[in-house]
C-alpha cells in the first residue's frame, strides 16, 4: 500500500518510495537527506491541512501540507 505523508498515521516509521513534484523540490528535500529509499518517522500533523512534522535521523522537520502530499511512503499504515 502506498500513501502520501498526509494520509498515514502519526507516530510510526515509513519508507519513502516516491517523491512527486519537480526537480526543485527533490533537490530541496535531498539537501536534508530526504530521498527515496530512506526511512522517516511521522511525528504529528497540525490540523487537517496544516504542516506535517517528520523525523529523519536526529533532525525534525516541519513540511508544508503541499510538500507532504508529494512524498509517497509505504510501511505499516
Amino acid at each position: 500500500m502506498k500513501k502520501d505523508l498526509t494520509q498515514v498515521k502519526a507516530g510510526q516509521k515509513y519508507k519513502i518510495v516516491e517523491i512527486l513534484g519537480g526537480h526543485r523540490l527533490q533537490k530541496k528535500l535531498d539537501a536534508l537527506g530526504i530521498r527515496i529509499g530512506i526511512e522517516i518517522k511521522k511525528i504529528t500533523s497540525i490540523s487537517s491541512k496544516g504542516p506535517i512534522i517528520i523525523q529523519i535521523a536526529e533532525t525534525q522537520l516541519a513540511l508544508g501540507y503541499g510538500i507532504a502530499k508529494k512524498i509517497i511512503v509505504e510501511g505499516n499504515m
Binding site: T59, Q60, L63
Partner: peptide, 10 residues
C-alpha cells in the same frame, strides 16, 4: 504560496 520547510531544532 510557497510551503513551509523548516527544521525544528531540539
Amino acid at each position: 504560496i510557497s510551503e513551509l520547510f523548516l527544521e525544528i531544532p531540539p
